[in-house]
């Protein structure tokens, strides 16, 4: 997996949610280049190419990050904040995918520069649709920044 280009980074602590997400992505053939991290610290290690991920390179960022907010160790908004305030990572699109529709989470998310905020629907059919749209949008429809444009700065 590490040799292959990672297109989606899924940050999710709940195993059931991970499975449902993978199931939805798999049905849309999007699951093959996804990497799952289970807490905020691991997400930061991955994104900033350190710790267990020190062999990764900033020149190969994920195409987008699916970020839960309630996370062990470092919470989602903190991860978002660090990501968006660092020149090397701030261009990486981040989609918050969370159970919360609390206003303050929405406001904080957008203020920190999140690209999209989606509440996980209870209805699995809707969830599957949402994940499908997300994958298609960020991997197919959206034009990423040019290669190396980020690490060069």
């Amino acid at each position: 997996m590490t040799t292959q280009e990672i297109e989606i980074l899924l940050v999710e602590d709940n195993l059931a949610d991970v499975e449902l997400a993978l199931h939805a992505l798999r049905q849309n053939n999007l699951a093959n280049r996804i990497h799952v991290v289970r807490d905020g610290e691991e997400a930061l290690d991955f994104l900033f190419c350190r710790g267990t991920y020190k062999n990764r390179s900033f020149s190969q960022p994920p195409r987008f990050v699916l970020l839960d907010l309630k996370l062990p160790k470092v919470d989602g908004l903190e991860v978002l904040g660090q990501l968006k305030s660092d020149a090397r990572t701030k261009a990486i699109p981040v989609v918050i995918l969370t159970s919360s529709k609390e206003e303050k989470d929405l406001i904080n998310g957008y203020q920190l520069g999140v690209n999209s905020y989606i509440q996980k629907p209870v209805d699995f059919a809707q969830f599957r649709e949402t994940v499908k749209h997300l994958g298609l949008y960020w991997l197919v429809v959206n034009e990423p920044p040019p290669d190396g444009a980020l690490s060069a700065k």
């Binding site: 709940n14 949610d17 309630k70 159970s99 209805d123 699995f124």
Partner: peptide, 17 residues
């Protein structure tokens, strides 16, 4: 809002699968 909803999603999701 966070934690009560998660299990519901799981029940619905897995039963649907």
């Amino acid at each position: 809002s966070h934690d009560l909803r998660a299990p519901l999603r799981h029940i619905d999701g897995f039963s649907k699968i």
